[in-house]
Amino acid sequence: MGSLGLLLKPEIQTHNALTDVSFEIEAGSFTGLIGANGAGKTTLLKILSGLIPPSSGEALVLDENPFKRSMSFRRQISLVMGQKAQLWWDLPAVDAFDLLQAIFEIPKKTYQERLTTLTELLDVTRLLNTQIRRLSLGERMKMELIGALLHWPKIIFLDEPTIGLDILAAHKLREFLKVFNHKEKATIILTSHNMDDIERLCSRVIILRAGKTIYDGTPTGLTNEGERRLRVRLMQTPTLAELCQITGLPAERIELQKIGNEEASEKNEGESETPIQPTHDSVLFSIGQEQIVGVLQALMGRVQIIDMGIEQQSLEHVIQKLYSEERASV
């Protein structure tokens, strides 16, 4: 009966992908857009590139309303979506590039120079005459990127460009983007779930949560430069209250990691294998470098330490915390 009802009167739900986002981006900068799945990153890129209009508010890119998609605007931008192929599956990349050369009216000589530069930088010259469908994911992504850059756009929108790439391919792609941004002064806006992309490339990070900006600043500002994570393993783990009392630190600076949770958390951070299985719980103290000695002294006076290590606060860890806060708030 319910299904029949829906057939006659479909239920339509409206979801605002972005609700409170406002920012300006400097020409020639490299900006990272991050957020959990469904935070609104791709929607924002689609609005900025002119694919969809905002239902309210205003977007201005290169002093133009992007949704008008004027020919001059299209000639100056590029959008690469890691999950969407732009080249033709059954044709070699070079055929698609030849067509793009004609579409963007790139002079033949300039086109040849750019193609040589890009293919050499990305190490795919030998694959130019291979059908796209026969390339590996990484090789295909590189070809997609070349296709998107042949017209030397002033603004490049990259939506998860390193998705599915192996470490080496992702590294090469990152190095290439860094060089391109630096040499050509192109403005690049990147979304990625790979924090390496953000940390190594972006001078500015905008974090979205449920369609709202929750952070806009430098990546180091996010990780609190100078802040360290002191990890200790204790023979007998005290309670959180006891640890606060021993170290004099507030509870939000102390994180207790049970063995099972810690393993999961370590795997999340990319350390897929731990050579020695921990037998005791860990305690993580988020403290300044100058506090480390004091905290250790206080601990040694009251409990027996088995193992310890000092880690720099990683962006990945900060983002993980932000995402888990988001999930908890839903």
């Binding site: 033709w88 059954d90 044709l91 055929d95 698609a96 030849d98 067509l99 050369q101 004609a102 579409i103 009216e105 059908q131």
Partner: peptide, 18 residues
């Protein structure tokens, strides 16, 4: 003709790839 000629050529290449 501009890009149209290139698109025609590309379309034929694509259609006759097999």
């Amino acid at each position: 003709l501009g890009w149209r000629w290139a698109a025609l050529r590309n379309g034929l290449q694509d259609a006759t790839a097999y």
